[in-house]
């Protein structure tokens, strides 16, 4: 089990992670979501003892990672950045890691087979494709047969086959009862794999919830698509009762702030014909956008002229690591 309490990391003046608190539930796949530069990798590096927190703590099974006597048996990690010497063969890389824990060669052979690298295991890592590199990273993470697996952007740069492989792997790990902590900036990845979500933006916690309620929460303000031959008149009416309309390219209106019922009733009351009335589905991505938008607006430190409604660009800006 991983517990993060008030975790804070500053690099000089730059705030990478600020007062982050969450607990990973054992036996679940928890998605760690946030735009690029939100502090996901930093948080993972803090959990894994690679960086020192400025304040706060991150513990694995009740102890700081540095205090674990056999860390590879407790947490397996796949970092986003490469962590392999390119001059060594994949097999020898795994062997050297295994030897720090007295893990037998038999287990090295096992994980090599598990990730399907048998044919290239004795070739130098420098010649590996991105997909092979990810497989090697997963093999290293599983070396100690840990109950918790931490993966930073495992699907990054993979081809569709590689992404499918990662997805199946995650399902397999979860089915074995392992705790999986998985970061991504791609919402679609999370929709497919995660049970729970921890969302961060600008190093701060935005949401700690399960996927269904995350979407439901954001759906409360979901827009409605409406098409009418009297588009302008309708927009005027809806504006009068608190709706905000956006003209779509096909002539329809996207209405924010009103439910489908309110839009239909208002149109009927004014005798305006409707050709289409659709409550729009909220995807995880939109839910994420809407939540991080709130987070951005909440902050007073933002410069003037920031446009709400484009939170991804806002968040990613100037917060790269």
């Amino acid at each position: 089990m991983i517990e993060v309490r008030g975790l804070t990391k500053h690099y000089g003046d730059r705030v990478a992670v600020e007062d982050l608190t969450f607990t990973l539930e054992p036996g679940f796949v928890t998605g760690f979501l946030g735009p690029n530069g939100a502090g996901k990798s930093t948080t993972m590096r803090l959990i894994l003892g690679l960086d020192r927190p400025t304040r706060g703590t991150a513990t694995v099974n009740g102890r700081a990672y540095q205090e674990l006597s056999a860390p590879l048996h407790e947490v397996g990690a796949l970092l986003e950045a490469r962590a392999v010497h390119t001059g060594r063969s994949g097999y020898n890389h795994l062997l050297a890691l295994a030897q720090t824990h007295g893990i037998p060669r038999r287990r090295v052979d096992e994980v090599v087979a598990m990730v399907g690298l048998e044919s290239v295991a004795h070739k130098r890592v420098g010649g590996f494709s991105l997909g092979m590199g990810q497989r090697l990273g997963v093999a290293a993470a599983l070396l100690g047969n840990p109950a918790t697996v931490v993966l930073d952007e495992p699907a990054n740069g993979l081809d569709p086959e590689g992404i499918r492989w990662i997805r199946n792997l995650l399902k397999g790990l979860a089915a074995e009862g392992r705790t999986v902590f998985l970061s991504s900036h791609l919402m679609s990845e999370m929709e497919q794999t995660a049970d729970r979500l921890i969302v961060i933006g600008r190093g701060r916690l935005v949401a700690d919830t399960d996927v269904a309620s995350f979407v439901a929460q954001a759906s409360a303000g979901a827009p409605v698509r409406v098409r009418s031959p009297a588009s302008d008149a309708l927009a005027g009416v809806l504006g009068g009762i608190g709706g905000r309309c956006e003209q779509l390219e096909d002539g329809a209106l996207k209405v924010f702030g009103l439910s489908a019922e309110q839009v239909g009733d208002a149109a009927a009351a004014q005798g305006i014909a409707l050709h289409e009335l659709t409550p729009l589905q909220v995807t995880l991505e939109e839910a994420f956008m809407s939540l991080t938008k709130d987070m951005v607006e909440y902050h007073e430190s933002l410069p003037e002229g920031e446009q709400p409604g484009v939170p991804l660009a806002t968040l990613a800006d100037g917060d790269q690591q």
């Binding site: 062997l95 050297a96 287990r107």
Partner: peptide
């Protein structure tokens, strides 16, 4: 979907963990 409880994982722990001789063995290999 994962299980809600944590079942027994097949473990083969060498519980002594990381020791200087083991890290030295690893560095020898490296």
């Amino acid at each position: 979907m994962s299980a809600t409880t944590s079942p027994e994982l097949p473990r083969e722990r060498a519980l002594q963990g990381v020791t200087l001789p083991r890290v030295t063995h690893s560095e020898w290999t490296k």
